[in-house]
Design a protein around this nucleic acid. Structure first.
Lengths: 192, 192
DNA sequence: ACCGAGCGAGAACGAACGTTCTCCCCTCTC
DNA sequence: GAGAGGGGAGAACGTTCGTTCTCGCTCGGT
C-alpha cells in the first residue's frame, strides 16, 4: 500500500467522522478502526491529532473550492454566476451527510483553543469572500455587493444546518437576486 | 447565601466560560473555582454537566430575546424596527466577549452528540424567525421577507465571529434595507 | 536458512474529565 | 458542653483520550 494512499484514506475518513459527530467526539482509535490502518501508521503519517485536523480542513477547503467552481463554471452570464453560488449550496444541503459548514463547526469547537484552526477558518472565509468579489466584479457590481452575498451564503449554511432543511438555500438565493439586481441597477443608473 | 443565588451565579459563570473557550474545554473543577462554589454545591444544584449546559442555553435565549426586544422597542416605525435587529447585532459584535452565536457554537460542538442541545438550538432559531416574521408582518411585508432577514442576521453572526470584526453587521444592515424596500415596494405595487 | 528491519495488534501510560466519597470544621440545638 | 447535621476542601474513582511502547510476525537480502 502506497504511503500517500494511507494518508488520503486517513484524512478522508477523519473528514467523514469529524463532520458527522464533531472533532472532539471522535478518538484516534475509532479513526484508526474506520480508516483500516494501524495506530502505528497513523502516527507515522501524522504527528498528532491536531495535524490530522489541519489536514482535514485543507481537504475541506479544496473540496469546497472545487465544487463551487464547478457549479459556477457551468453558467456564463455574470449575474447567473453569482446566483450559482446558491445553487451549489442547495445541492450541498441536500446531501445526507450535510451537517453545516465544517469551518464554522471546527471554529466553534476549537477556535478558542487552537489558533491554527481559528486562522484557517478565517482564511477559508476570506478566500470565499474574495472569490465572490471576483464574480461581482465581473458582473460590474459595486464592491459592497460581495460581502452582502457572502453573509447570505454564510447564513444559509448555519440556518440549513440547525433547521435540518435545505430551504434556506432557496430563500437566500431569492434574496441574492434582489440584492444583485439592486446593485446592478445602481451601477447602470450611475453609468447612464 | 441563597440557594437560587448560587444557581444563577453558577449559570452566569458557566455562560462566560463556555462562551470564551467552548463547552468541552471547560471542566467542572474550573467552573467550580470560577463560580466560587464547592463541588458539592455544584452537584447539589445540577445533576450533571449536561443540565448546566441546558441552563446556560436557557439563559442565553432569555438574554438574547430581551436585548433584541429592548433595541427594537426603541423605535416605532415598522421598517426601522426590522432594521433595529441589525443595530442590535452591531452593538453585540462590539462586545469584547463576543465569540459568535452561542447556539450555533453549542450546536456545532454538541449538536451531533446531544439531541437536547440540537433541539434547543433549533427552537431558539425558530423563535427568532418567528419574531422577525411578526416584525415583518407589522411592516406589511410579504412572508418571504422574514426568512431572508433571518438568514442575513445568521450570516452576520458567523461572519463577525470568524473574521473577528463587527463590520458584518453594517453590511448585513444595508443588505436588509435593500431587501425590505424591495419587499415593501412589491406589496405597495400590489396594493395599487 | 538466517538475520534484521518493518509492520500490525494491542497493552501501557499519563493526563484530564465527570462524578462521588471522605474527612473535618463550623454551627445550631438540647 | 455534647452531639448531630450540613457544608467546604479536595482526595478518590472509573473512564476516556492522545500518545508511546512492547511483542511477535513477516519478508527480503545474502
Amino acid at each position: 500500500m502506497n504511503i500517500s494512499e494511507a494518508r488520503t484514506r486517513i484524512v478522508a475518513t477523519a473528514d467523514e467522522l469529524y463532520n458527522a459527530r464533531g472533532i472532539q467526539a471522535v478518538g484516534m482509535d475509532e479513526l484508526r478502526a474506520a480508516a483500516g490502518v494501524s495506530l502505528k501508521k497513523l502516527y507515522q503519517e501524522f504527528p498528532s491529532k491536531g495535524s490530522i485536523v489541519m489536514a482535514v480542513l485543507e481537504r475541506r477547503h479544496k473540496s469546497w473550492a472545487e465544487g463551487l467552481e464547478a457549479t459556477v463554471g457551468q453558467v456564463a452570464a455574470p449575474r447567473e454566476r453569482l446566483l450559482a453560488i446558491f445553487d451549489y449550496l442547495a445541492q450541498w444541503f441536500c446531501d445526507d451527510s450535510f451537517r453545516g459548514c465544517g469551518f464554522i463547526n471546527s471554529f466553534a469547537e476549537l477556535g478558542a483553543v487552537s489558533p491554527d484552526v481559528a486562522e484557517y477558518a478565517r482564511e477559508h472565509k476570506a478566500s470565499f469572500q474574495e472569490y465572490v468579489s471576483r464574480l461581482a466584479d465581473d458582473a460590474g457590481a459595486p464592491t459592497y455587493l460581495a460581502p452582502q452575498l457572502s453573509i447570505l451564503a454564510e447564513g444559509a449554511q448555519t440556518t440549513a444546518a440547525i433547521a435540518g432543511t435545505a430551504e434556506a438555500a432557496r430563500q437566500a438565493r431569492s434574496a441574492a437576486e434582489v440584492l444583485i439586481d439592486a446593485a446592478l441597477g445602481v451601477t447602470a443608473r450611475r453609468a447612464a
